[in-house]
């Protein structure tokens, strides 16, 4: 199943076919892929930073990640702090 994360298509691989994909599953796979793309140990050792998330343009709180399903072509936006005026 394909979903969009931060504007880029990502294929989710189902581990347990009985259960639906949840936001937490998608994030877990996304972070694993991102970390594996970072080749050096320094990057691997970096702590996962704080972020906030929206699913299809709607805010999803951290306590909802494990209970919110994602469906094909859903769009996740992962936002982090940046300077602003």
């Amino acid at each position: 199943m394909n979903i969009i994360i931060n504007g880029q298509t990502m294929q989710l691989i189902k581990v347990n076919t009985l259960n639906a994909f949840m936001v937490s599953d998608a994030l877990g796979q996304y972070f694993c892929e991102q970390i594996s793309e970072q080749s050096n140990e320094h990057q691997l050792a970096k702590k996962q930073p704080s972020f906030a998330l929206a699913l299809n343009g709607n805010f999803i709180g951290k306590d909802e990640y494990a209970s919110t399903p994602v469906r094909p072509n859903d769009s996740l936006d992962i936002l982090l702090p940046i300077q602003g005026g």
């Binding site: 931060n6 504007g7 972070f31 991102q34 970390i35 970072q38 990057q43 970096k46 996962q48 930073p49 972020f51 906030a52 936006d77 992962i78 936002l79 982090l80 702090p81 940046i82 300077q83 602003g84 005026g85």
Partner: peptide, 19 residues
């Protein structure tokens, strides 16, 4: 101090130092 949120790669993001 004002600041914002933006789509970023959470792993090794460049905005970490600013934050």
């Amino acid at each position: 101090i004002t600041l914002s949120l933006k789509r970023q790669n959470p792993v090794g993001n460049s905005g970490a130092q600013i934050w």
